[in-house]
Amino acid sequence: MHLRAFVDNIGRRTLNGIAELGYASLLFVECVYWLGAGKFRSQPVRLAAIFRETMNIGVRAIPIASMLCFAVGVMLAIQGIETLKTYGAESKVVIGIALSVTREFSPLIVSILVAGRSGSAIAARIGTMLESQEVDALRVIGINPVRYLAAPLFLGMVIAVPTLTILGDLMGILGGAVYSALELKISLSVYIDQTLASLTVDDIQQGLIKSLVFAVIIVVVGLSNGFQVRGGAEGVGHATTRSVVLSISFIVLADMIFTYLLNR
């Protein structure tokens, strides 16, 4: 009897998971559709709305994103120098920092920050609007909610996360440079020269491709959780938590997969 309930449960969860994946994919397609075809159906995605979302997701996150990436740079320098000391190759830390920041840490830290900051806000906002019938109000006015609410968020996210990642690259390298300057007495200009010599376009590109994927994950997870809110304030809270946990989990998993694929 227990086994049957167990299998039943697994089956049900799998079905729900697939249904949700389907819903999320549909949202993704719809966002892209409205961004492309909206103006031909007299329902354009307004530039002002896109700017507003990009501002909220990107520009307002600049201070905290810079700080975190700087700290990661410093941390990598400390660990790197400590490890490389064993081989007497402390100066090689520059390459290590440059590669790990651009390929890995900057996109990852920025995305996790944005997931916590904006992914949750997206789910909460959409969920609250759904509960207070604002989404119904949009629909009866003749405004497609995906076009009006989701599409600007989608584009804003896709612009903001890679842009923040570039900033994160710079701040991470700067963090490494400052610590190395103090610890190894490498001057800033030498450090930057070495960094530039060791970085290739591919390193930066890898980070940017990842950040684009992470951006899509954050916005689609946030939106689909928001649009599926049931059960009042508690439901909104649940969706908010869920969207943060899910998007961070998917980001880390996607990171692993992409790192594997991009390095083959």
């Binding site: 609250t128 609007m129 207070s132 019938q133 604002e134 119904d136 109000a137 009866v140």
Partner: peptide
Amino acid sequence: DMGVAFQGGALFG
């Protein structure tokens, strides 16, 4: 040609 006033107003906050 349709107008709707919802129970809670549903004004956009």
